[in-house]
Design a protein around this nucleic acid. Sequence first.
DNA 1: CGCCATGTTGGAACAACGTTCCAGACATGT
DNA 2: ACATGTCTGGAACGTTGTTCCAACATGGCG
Lengths: 233, 233
Amino acid sequence: MASRTRKSERRTEALTRERILEAAVELLDATGEGGLTFRALTERLVTGPGAIYWHVANKGELLDAATDTVVAAALAIEPAESADSPQGEIRAVALGLFDAIDEHPWLAAQLATQLSRSPWGAVAPRILESIGRQVRALGVPEGSQFTATSALMHYILGAAGQNAANGRVLGPGVDRSEFLDATSRAWKELDPDDFPFTRAVADQMRAHDDQAEFLAGIDLILAGITAVHPPTT
Amino acid sequence: MASRTRKSERRTEALTRERILEAAVELLDATGEGGLTFRALTERLVTGPGAIYWHVANKGELLDAATDTVVAAALAIEPAESADSPQGEIRAVALGLFDAIDEHPWLAAQLATQLSRSPWGAVAPRILESIGRQVRALGVPEGSQFTATSALMHYILGAAGQNAANGRVLGPGVDRSEFLDATSRAWKELDPDDFPFTRAVADQMRAHDDQAEFLAGIDLILAGITAVHPPTT
DNA sequence: CGCCATGTTGGAACAACGTTCCAGACATGT
DNA sequence: ACATGTCTGGAACGTTGTTCCAACATGGCG
């Protein structure tokens, strides 16, 4: 291919948008959301800023594209035939996103930021589609499908966003149960007049399992959907 | 008080943390989330960065505090007696946050960021408390109160985050219906094989009313809660 | 009444970041 | 061989968050 291996090929592998995105995701995974800088990127791929800007418009587009890539991958894993019922598939979609956030801790903040900036960008339709098909299969009448699907999507994104700190974020030295303990203790020391409920559920909060809680929320909404739209008489 | 009105009192009014927070919120409201810079702040309050850093640790704390202030104000408006049922009060709390985001467009992104960074900071317990009291009044058994309340909270935060762009964000020249039209049209041009559902609901999406849709989601979850935990036989 | 101690201020300076600009290297078509 | 358009990497710019410090105010003590 190349013309006789010149003294040192300009690059061992051509710089491409995909390679940049890949490096960006790896950098984010390794060093957190603050770790993705153009300086670090130019060092990782061995090049200058100009080269990157040739393939990508700006940092915002880079982050958006990275997010879209990861979300698309998470939704693609969907086993397709493993789950039998529509409910099961919805849980699978939700867990897919949940796990993706667990693998890529920066994803939560990024998803949230991106959705609030351009609510119907590339990511939202992906999720809407995955869930919507199952909502349809659930027998929800056409006029209510958008509402039901949106509700599920909003819950998933809200819950996923808050469950980002599942373990690693706190860095080494502080593990999950320690963190839950500290939070629970802090809640119990809140003003009894202003925070009676929060104080009361402090124990449930300490013992709770993120994933189980997340699924319980999904089931609650699914129950609501079936209650409001009973499956075909 | 002051010693004989010197040539020009150092400040007409002392610089305090509250005054800084107030100025920060005003700046955010006026110029958007990107408009809050220490330069702009020092200009607004007539001072230097050092003075601000004496009262506030860093920009993160400033944003967190501003967010907390606004959220607390939004939850305090709660009419307390206006709504009769627990369901009604939950809707009121939700709408309070919804409206706050409408008044302070930067709040959505900030809330999302803040919740994903420190999930159980100052803001979450506030919301948890407001909703939790009503969930308790709903007759949900104690062991399930945390789950039900969390589900509602996650939905509210997820939906609120995405509904930030209600009007203003797009700037003058592009109003809401134009935006919805464009989005709806874009959805209809998606790949029929990959996005059948999204294409099908494109029309519902164009016609939808954000607030009504938001409340419909709340009602769906409330229906789920009552279905799973029927009110005291 | 003067003077230090303490709390507070504002400006200058710094490092890091996103971004722009440009001179030049590479591959390709003629 | 040369001209052309694509692609590269480094130097430079403006802006941001933050730090540092000399100056100021005020209240208590001698």
